[in-house]
Amino acid sequence: MYFRPLRRLLAGVTFMLLVGIFLLWRIDSPRVERLRADLTDRFVPNFEWAMAPVTGTVNIAKDFQSYQQVYEQNQQLRRELQQMKAWKEAALQLEQQNAQLRDLNNVRLDPKLTHVTGVVLADSGSPFRQSVLLNVGARDGIMDGWATMDGVGLVGRISGIGGETSRVILLTDSHSRIPVTIQPSGQRAIIAGDNAASPLIEFLEDPDMVRPGDRVVSSGDGGVFPAGLLVGQIAQGPDQRLRVRLAADYERMKFLRILRKQPNAPITDTGAMLAPALSSQTGAGIIPLQDSQ
């Protein structure tokens, strides 16, 4: 009774429809991704009332687990605190010195680099992709490609915006590629996510000049990100490949800040003269001519 032609036809039609949607996505990806963003926008915020208690409960359970390690951690923190006090002293002195020098130089920090803070609503939901969904979107003026940080380091970039939600592709996602500079040596490289906790470093010119522990910051190449955002530290895997231990705390992602970025003024033509605009009403070059007649 389940082999009736009608059922077969229905299955066939459903199958073709799905394949059709897939092909449409393959051909015209941006439009279908737009639809995806809209669907996410429609569905996920509605889950929020249910998600909050579940997330809370699981986090409490996790916290209980971590009580075991608290004593050990406490001892370790005490030791670190001793070292940190020395560092803090040094930092304070440097800060004062820095402020004085800034004052002397009349340096003004980039005022365009403001940020919007969003709350993490959801993650990608499968181990195949690494992304999170934030509760800010086009309504808040978020745009594709903006950098996202937690308090300390870079987390990822915005990719996909709905009205009230936007998706952040994390640096660990296998599609993420970010240009970086490795600090003391100043070498340029790309960090490439591979769905592992620490992304790989690729296209490094001279690996001998890089040591584990070096600081990795964004380089601003390609106009993707502002330069100088902290990404993490170099670490070396047992397979001798260089990876980045990320500075951002991926375990506890709750609030993320999205850095607003104004695009650079685009250069549209090759070499026109820098002159006031010539038009019949306000043209500065024409009026004096008429006055002289």
Binding site: V44, V54, N59, A122, V132, T172, A196
Partner: peptide, 18 residues
Amino acid sequence: NILPLQTVPPEFFSMNAV
């Protein structure tokens, strides 16, 4: 599935140094 609980990628067969 999409609860934001697992934002760290799981490591199964990829031996990671860290």
